[in-house]
């Protein structure tokens, strides 16, 4: 009941991973860690869906529906009937 907000859409496919480590560099919440030749998810619950890892993964091994985690933007988008919430 008190942690409905711990949720995200991050998906990682270790088979496609080439181990370049770009996701390790760009993730601001330490979600990934090296695991031998590839990487693995170590803190998936900390993902804030910024999308940096997906954008910088040349192998397409990471999928995440990125967007702003901002209630004010979502309320504004609903009121003004915008399709994507933004910072105004």
């Amino acid at each position: 009941m008190f942690d409905v907000s711990i949720a995200n859409t991050l998906q990682f496919d270790p088979v496609s991973c080439n181990g370049c480590g770009m996701c390790l560099a760009v993730c601001p919440h330490g979600v990934f860690a090296r695991n031998g030749r590839t990487v693995q998810l170590v803190r998936p619950e900390a993902c804030m869906e910024c999308g940096a890892c997906q954008v910088n993964c040349s192998e397409g091994a990471i999928r995440v529906e990125s967007g702003v985690g901002c209630a004010a933007a979502m309320f504004r988008a609903a009121l003004l009937r915008q399709s994507t919430p933004s910072c105004g």
Binding site: V4, T9, C47, G69, C70, A71
Partner: peptide, 10 residues
């Protein structure tokens, strides 16, 4: 640190 999915669920 808040995610869009999490905020939407909230």
């Amino acid at each position: 640190f808040t995610s869009r999915t999490g905020v939407r669920r909230e």
